[in-house]
Amino acid sequence: MNNLVVKICGILDVPTIESMLNLPIDYIGFVFAKSRRQVTPGQVADMIQALGNHHIKVPETAGVFVNPSEQELEETVRHASLDIIQLHGQESPEFCKWVKQSLNVKVFKVFSNLHQIVMRDDSTNSYEQVDEECSKLLNPYVNQIDALMLDTYDPVVGGGTGETFNWELIPIVQRWTKKNNVPLIVAGGLDVDNVRSLISTYAPDGVDVSSGVETNRIKDVKKIKTFVERVRVNV
């Protein structure tokens, strides 16, 4: 990822996809985990086919899962030709490796509970101590994932809650991602009002939004357009 990338997640239908095709969006996401935005492999296959009907560069497609089985992923990819598997659970480095090698896809690994581990109330903890703890957790994922994602923790759906997390975590993880050349994508409660602040303060490699571009729980094309415009300002 050489430039700041944009991912719009939780897509449910072809009209929403077609409304975004002329926008500079890099990834679109489909939620297979239990969620109000959950879709089936058949539905996603139809949406991906609709993408292919347009003779322009289209976004890459990501499937969102929480602790899936190998069989679930194999069956899903057999129906829907996803480019990326996005993992929101407690998937191990070994599982990520299997996904990349066996399914021939990219892997985006979401970490939504790092703040519970690497951020301490004890002010005596030094940068070195925190970095060591972060590296201990993340080093096994080097070469097994194509991007690291930060999201707000939710024990059921994994993400997409519309709530932000403590952004002070970002520089801690960012030191690791830069050192290991792993792109960092930030999700969790982003919207048209706060995305510029995130980008100008922390300069992640990418941003991911779902509920932040919805109105009454439905994707709002105007909000998507505004979100993308605000991301792309001075990028």
Rank of each mutant, 00 (worst) to 15 (best):
I199H: 02
K136Y: 14
V182Q: 01
I185P: 01
P183H: 08
I145S: 03
S211T: 15
V157C: 12
D146N: 15
V186S: 01
K179T: 12
D208H: 13
G159L: 06
L198I: 10
S210W: 03
W167A: 09
R196M: 08
E168W: 07
R175I: 04
D205W: 09
V195G: 02
W176D: 01
P183W: 08
C134P: 00
V156G: 03
L190C: 06
Q144L: 06
A147D: 01
I172D: 01
R175Q: 09
V182W: 03
P140I: 12
A203G: 10
L169G: 02
Q144G: 03
A203W: 06
V156T: 13
V182I: 15
A203S: 14
A187L: 10
T152M: 09
C134H: 04
Q174F: 05
S210G: 10
I170D: 07
E168K: 14
Y141K: 01
Y153P: 01
G188Q: 04
W176H: 00
N166H: 13
G158N: 05
V192N: 06
L198A: 07
A187M: 07
N181T: 09
S200D: 15
A203C: 12
L169P: 01
Q144A: 15
W167T: 03
N180M: 13
N166W: 04
G160H: 05
G159S: 11
S200N: 15
D191C: 14
T201L: 13
N180L: 02
V173Q: 00
L190Y: 07
L150P: 02
S197L: 14
G160Y: 10
V157G: 08
S135K: 11
S135W: 01
A147L: 08
N139L: 13
V186M: 08
P140K: 09
K136D: 05
D208P: 08
K136L: 14
R196D: 02
S200E: 15
N166D: 15
V192S: 09
P155E: 06
L148Q: 03
P140V: 06
E168L: 13
K136W: 14
L198V: 08
Q144H: 15
I170R: 05
P204Y: 08
R175A: 12
G158P: 00
S197Y: 11
N166Y: 09
D191P: 04
I172G: 00
G158R: 07
G212E: 03
I185M: 12
D193R: 12
D208L: 13
T177R: 06
P155D: 06
V186R: 04
S211H: 10
D151Y: 11
D191T: 13
K179Q: 14
I199M: 08
S135R: 13
W167K: 09
V182K: 00
L169H: 11
K178E: 04
R196T: 15
L198C: 07
V195S: 05
I199F: 09
I199A: 05
N139W: 04
W176F: 15
S210P: 05
L169V: 07
L169D: 01
D151M: 09
N139F: 10
W167M: 12
P171L: 04
E163S: 11
Q144V: 13
W176R: 00
V156K: 12
V173S: 00
L184C: 03
D208E: 11
G159K: 03
G206C: 13
G160T: 08
T164V: 14
Q174K: 14
T161I: 10
C134S: 10
N181Y: 12
F165Q: 00
V207G: 02
D193V: 06
S210C: 14
V209R: 07
